[in-house]
């Protein structure tokens, strides 16, 4: 994974597969504190304590199509390489929260990459799941909730080209406005 947004796209799939109906993505940039934190929190079926420990092992996966599961191990590796860490909180039946902390200024911290594209693809790719995204920087905060999008667009599908373009622009403009690092 070359960018943090790739990791987010990847870890989101875990939440989707865990049957989540609400997935929250929180990004916090604190340049002054040398911190770049990403949290993905879902209300999916959660994991037992034993499974949490296995989750960051490359040869653990819940899927049956293949025998390796590299999503979390790769994120952990990238976080640790930049002086940060990965923590997983989970409870069966309640949901899972994955937090990756990176060193903001560390040379090995991957760039954020195309987070706007990731969000748009995720939103239009998973009808019926509510996504909330919040991004905080030293300069401000941006939030978007698919519930308010559905409220606005009602029966107009979000994947409609013009709608998709508009959502894309909304996210991009606002992230630029709060000085989100790319």
């Amino acid at each position: 994974m070359k960018t943090i947004s790739d990791h987010i796209l990847d870890i989101l799939q875990n939440s989707v597969r865990a049957g989540a109906t609400l997935i929250e993505i929180m990004v916090r940039e604190e340049k002054s504190n040398d911190l770049y934190a990403v949290r993905i929190k879902d209300d999916g079926h959660g994991m037992t304590r034993e499974k949490i420990q296995q989750a960051t092992q490359p040869f653990f996966t819940t899927r049956t199509t293949r025998k390796v599961g590299l999503g979390l191990p790769l994120l952990k590796q990238n976080a640790e390489m930049s002086g940060g860490n990965l923590t997983i909180d989970s409870e069966p039946g309640k949901g899972t929260s994955v937090t990756a902390v990176f060193g903001y200024n560390h040379v090995d911290r991957p760039p954020m990459g195309d987070i706007t594209g990731v969000l748009v693809l995720t939103i239009i790719g998973h009808d019926g799941i509510r996504f909330r995204y919040s991004h905080t920087t030293d300069e401000g905060e941006f939030e978007i909730d698919t519930d308010s999008l559905h409220e606005i667009f009602e029966d107009v599908p979000l994947r409609h080209p013009e709608v998709r373009g508009a959502i894309n622009e909304l996210i991009k403009t606002n992230l630029t406005a709060i000085g989100a690092s790319t």
């Binding site: 606005i152 709608v163 508009a166 959502i167 909304l170 403009t173 606002n174």
Partner: peptide, 14 residues
């Protein structure tokens, strides 16, 4: 497009 109100306009057009 910077706010949800702008999205509302797009919705009406679409």
């Amino acid at each position: 497009i910077t706010s949800l109100a702008d999205l509302k306009k797009i919705k009406d057009q679409v």
